[in-house]
Computed example of a mutant assay.
Amino acid sequence: MNHPENRRSRRLRRFKPLAAAAALVLALAACGAPASAPPGQQGSGEAQDGAAGGDKIVIGVGGQTLLTYMPTTLAQELGYYEDEGLNVELQDLQGGSKALTAMLGGSTDVTSGYYEHTIQMQAKNQPIKAFVDMGLSSGLALVVAPDQEGSIKSIADLKGKNVGVTSPGSSTDMFVKYLLAENGMKKEDASVSAIGAGSSAVAAVENGQVDAAVMLEPDVTVLAKRLGKDPVIIQDVRTLDGLKAVFGTEAWPSSSLYAKTDWLEQNPEDAKKLASAIKRTLEYIQTHSGKEIAAEMPEKYAGGDVDQYAAVIEELKATLSKDGAFTEEGAEAVLKTQRIANPEVGDKEIDLSTTYTNEFVQ
């Protein structure tokens, strides 16, 4: 199979005559990565260039600059959705709960969000099913704001503090509640504030708008660069070792593609094609370097430091799924954390077999 065209070369096909295309190539070649602020929060907001005919599929992403959702964007940049004959639009909704709400409201078809949302919705009798797994770890880190480093040294010190999360009800919020409960505290002992992802999250922590925050990559690394030192981190599941220490498991399915169960029943071929595109992307990630992957991603996501971005991607690769398939053990681990962190799940009867499927990635 030939290497897929990258984002730039696909877009160049639009320009005629050839002289104009050549001029644009030269202009692009002369430009390096922009000297910009930390990664922004705007998604691509456009359908796949040159996509085949058919109805557009809108995927809402729970924070498109976050590397936990990188496969969703990378599949578009590599042209894999187009290869499958799909017309895909990605919408950056800057938080998992916002992306879920958009799908439930009908403004998106599919969500690139955390698998745990399917469990939450079953508890509310709203059938949602995940059909391709991208992450083996939640990739979260509980970071202390610089002006609170002397007073917050453990989970117990979060009492009475304000913790930043991407959005209330999101996976970052659930992580705070889980940690509080596991340390014998009430979920209300710490308040949470929405700080989004990307530049807004980095600024909120750097400027002391929150006392601590649950962050993901590349935001943690960008924050360290802006501070000139590594931030204090009191819980970290960005690695598989950290995941096992916090959740007691080696697999905790996180970023995934999920949709309403009736959408999957009505659009099985589209679901299969989406799963195929993501599975190919996961294989691409495992066989290419962080530098090669960074080169395929939108330049603005690197926040002006492509080498740093590439290094973070290289570290992230170990926590991504290799084949897009869910495991029963991983699903059980997520359910366990939801029972502890989320009173809306609690001890309700949950049939995990209806919250995910591997039929489309096989």
Rank of each mutant, 00 (worst) to 15 (best):
343 P>H: 13
65 T>W: 03
148 Q>E: 11
271 A>K: 13
163 V>F: 05
247 F>P: 01
78 L>P: 04
47 A>T: 11
121 M>N: 15
197 A>M: 00
261 T>R: 15
11 R>Y: 09
179 L>Q: 13
279 K>M: 02
107 S>Y: 06
140 L>T: 06
173 D>S: 15
168 P>N: 05
144 V>S: 07
166 T>I: 07
355 T>L: 08
251 A>F: 13
325 A>P: 04
141 A>K: 09
159 K>D: 05
38 P>C: 06
238 R>Q: 03
356 Y>N: 03
59 I>M: 09
337 T>Q: 11
260 K>P: 03
87 N>Y: 09
102 A>T: 14
259 A>I: 00
140 L>V: 01
343 P>T: 12
77 E>L: 01
156 A>S: 11
15 F>I: 15
292 E>Q: 11
84 E>K: 11
180 L>V: 13
356 Y>D: 01
28 L>W: 14
226 R>H: 12
77 E>N: 08
62 G>H: 02
293 I>K: 10
100 L>R: 15
23 A>Y: 10
39 P>G: 14
42 Q>I: 02
181 A>M: 03
286 Q>H: 03
268 P>K: 13
103 M>R: 06
134 M>G: 10
332 E>L: 01
148 Q>I: 00
246 V>Y: 06
345 V>N: 08
347 D>F: 01
278 I>C: 05
136 L>E: 05
170 S>W: 00
69 Y>M: 04
14 R>H: 07
275 A>C: 09
132 V>D: 09
305 D>E: 02
203 A>S: 14
214 V>Q: 01
185 M>D: 11
234 I>T: 02
156 A>M: 01
334 V>C: 04
34 P>K: 02
323 D>V: 05
261 T>S: 15
195 I>N: 08
9 S>F: 12
312 V>D: 04
48 Q>G: 12
328 E>D: 13
24 L>M: 15
40 G>V: 05
106 G>E: 03
60 G>N: 08
308 Q>V: 08
150 G>D: 14
95 G>P: 10
12 L>N: 07
222 V>A: 14
168 P>D: 06
349 E>F: 10
65 T>G: 14
14 R>E: 04
157 D>Y: 03
362 Q>L: 13
74 L>K: 11
352 L>I: 09
189 D>K: 10
26 L>C: 13
110 V>L: 04
181 A>R: 12
217 E>G: 13
180 L>Y: 12
100 L>C: 13
85 G>H: 08
362 Q>P: 10
234 I>Q: 03
114 Y>N: 11
160 G>N: 12
163 V>T: 05
97 S>M: 04
287 T>M: 01
328 E>L: 15
168 P>R: 08
30 A>T: 02
201 A>C: 02
253 P>H: 10
44 S>E: 07
122 Q>G: 02
36 S>R: 09
29 A>W: 15
270 D>L: 02
243 L>F: 00
243 L>A: 00
30 A>K: 05
338 Q>F: 13
42 Q>M: 02
108 T>I: 10
6 N>V: 07
60 G>L: 00
